[in-house]
């Protein structure tokens, strides 16, 4: 499954959601993306990995969509483990992703070294 925009690409394959490029669309633009996340969660995979290592930029509406539409939503499925694979190459990830800890219990954040 795929969803893409002018400067970003979101792909789901083998329980891995990979987001790459730059995501700085307007708040209403995230409705589609949140629906895309819900559709994946509804398939009830035992484990889900969000790979944002190649996501260079995400605006505040995107942070909100990721937190509510994916992380908090994944908690609705019992025993679903969520992994986030991120990179210290991107400053926003280094500064913001660690604050996702504590949003849900079954969340594991893994930083790829620069």
């Amino acid at each position: 499954m795929n969803i893409s925009g002018e400067s970003y690409n979101i792909r789901y394959e083998n329980q891995v959601i990979e987001i790459s490029g730059k995501l700085s669309i307007m708040p209403e633009g995230y409705e589609n993306i949140e629906a895309f996340f819900r559709k994946i969660i509804d398939t009830e995979p035992p484990e889900l990995t969000l790979d944002i290592r190649n996501l260079e930029y995400l605006n505040s509406s995107g942070i909100k969509a990721m937190c509510i539409g994916l992380i908090l939503e994944s908690e609705t499925k019992e025993n679903l483990c969520l992994n986030i694979r991120c990179s210290k190459r991107h400053r926003w990830q280094k500064e913001t992703v660690p604050s996702f800890n504590g949003l849900i219990d079954n969340l594991k954040i893994v930083f790829e070294e620069e």
């Binding site: 942070i63 908090l72 604050s99 949003l103």
Partner: peptide
């Protein structure tokens, strides 16, 4: 609590 935390993050 999750939403409050999200608000803080955003």
């Amino acid at each position: 609590a999750g939403l409050e935390k999200t608000l803080q993050i955003v």
